[in-house]
């Protein structure tokens, strides 16, 4: 498990492309620089998508974990 403290948690379980990305973008906009968002998804495509999204937007993908059918992402707002 990651030892990063999340400032906000976003549940994207059951959602399919592109909703996890769109919701993550919306959520991160409400945070302050340096804050951490924890996002949980079940879409297997979200690993590549979140990697691409953070690369493009400059936000930091601190870690991603797989737990059962779930993918858990920690993202630090730039």
């Amino acid at each position: 498990m990651s030892d990063v403290q999340a400032n906000m948690e976003l549940d994207c379980r059951g959602l399919n492309c592109p909703l996890p990305i769109l919701k993550t973008k919306k959520a991160i906009e409400t945070l302050n620089t340096g804050d951490v968002l924890k996002m949980i998804a079940t879409d297997p495509g979200s690993i590549n998508d979140m990697t691409a999204w953070t690369k493009r937007t400059g936000n930091e993908l601190i870690s991603h974990e797989e737990s059962g059918d779930e993918y858990i992402f920690f993202i630090r707002k730039k």
Binding site: C17, I21, W53, R56
Partner: peptide, 11 residues
């Protein structure tokens, strides 16, 4: 609409 909404989310 998928590509456009995602592209905007990618700045």
């Amino acid at each position: 609409f998928i590509l456009a909404s995602t592209a905007v989310a990618m700045d």
